[in-house]
C-alpha cells in the first residue's frame, strides 16, 4: 500500500515557497506533510495533501512543474526506538530509503507517522506488515 506525494519545482529565492503555498491555500488544500530538498538554485517541495487531483490541477494551472511519486506512509509506535524499529525491518529486507520525513498525522497519543521513499513499495510494505507495522493508503490520507 502506498500513498501519493506531489513533488513541486520551486526556485531557491525569497517568496518562492510563499507563492506556492498560497496557491494551495486559495484552493483550500490541506497539507498533511511537507518536506523540502534544496540546492543552491532550486528546491523540490514534497507534499502529501488531502486532495491530490485538485492540488495537481491548481498547481499546474498556476504554472508549477510537478510530478506525483508513490511513497509509503508508515504508522510508527510513538515510543523511543520507534523509528529505529521500522528502519531495522527495512534494513533486514534490504530496502534502501531514498529519503524520509515526518508527517503531521492524527492526534493520536500512541502513534506517529512518517513518509518513506523506497525503490520497491510492495516488498517494503510486505516486510513491514509481517512485523505488524501498518502503512497508509490513499483513502486514509483523504479522510485523515
Amino acid at each position: 500500500m502506498s500513498i501519493k506525494q506531489i513533488s513541486v519545482f520551486v526556485e531557491n529565492k525569497p517568496g518562492a515557497m510563499c507563492a506556492m503555498t498560497a496557491v494551495l491555500a486559495e484552493n483550500n488544500i490541506d497539507m498533511r506533510a511537507l518536506s523540502l530538498a534544496e540546492t543552491a538554485d532550486f528546491g523540490i517541495v514534497r507534499i502529501i495533501v488531502d486532495n491530490v487531483y485538485t492540488a495537481t490541477t491548481v498547481l499546474k494551472d498556476a504554472g508549477y512543474i510537478h510530478s506525483v511519486t508513490s511513497v509509503l506512509g508508515v504508522r510508527i509506535p510513538n515510543v523511543p526506538g520507534g523509528v529505529n524499529k521500522v528502519l531495522n525491518i527495512l534494513t533486514e529486507a534490504d530496502v534502501n530509503v531514498e529519503y524520509m520525513y515526518a508527517f503531521l498525522g492524527k492526534k493520536e497519543k500512541n502513534h506517529a507517522y512518517m513518509i518513506f521513499r523506497v525503490q520497491d513499495d510492495a516488498s517494503a510494505t510486505a516486510a513491514l506488515m509481517a512485523q505488524g507495522i501498518t502503512t497508509l493508503n490513499q483513502d486514509d490520507i483523504e479522510t485523515f
Binding site: 506525494q5 513533488s7 519545482f9 540546492t39 532550486f42 523540490i44 514534497r46 512543474i65 510537478h66 510530478s67
Partner: peptide
C-alpha cells in the same frame, strides 16, 4: 526553464 519532461523528484538526477 525547468520543463515537466526534465523534472523528477530526485535531486541527484536533476543535478
Amino acid at each position: 526553464e525547468m520543463t515537466p519532461e526534465m523534472f523528477t523528484d530526485n535531486v541527484g538526477e536533476i543535478n
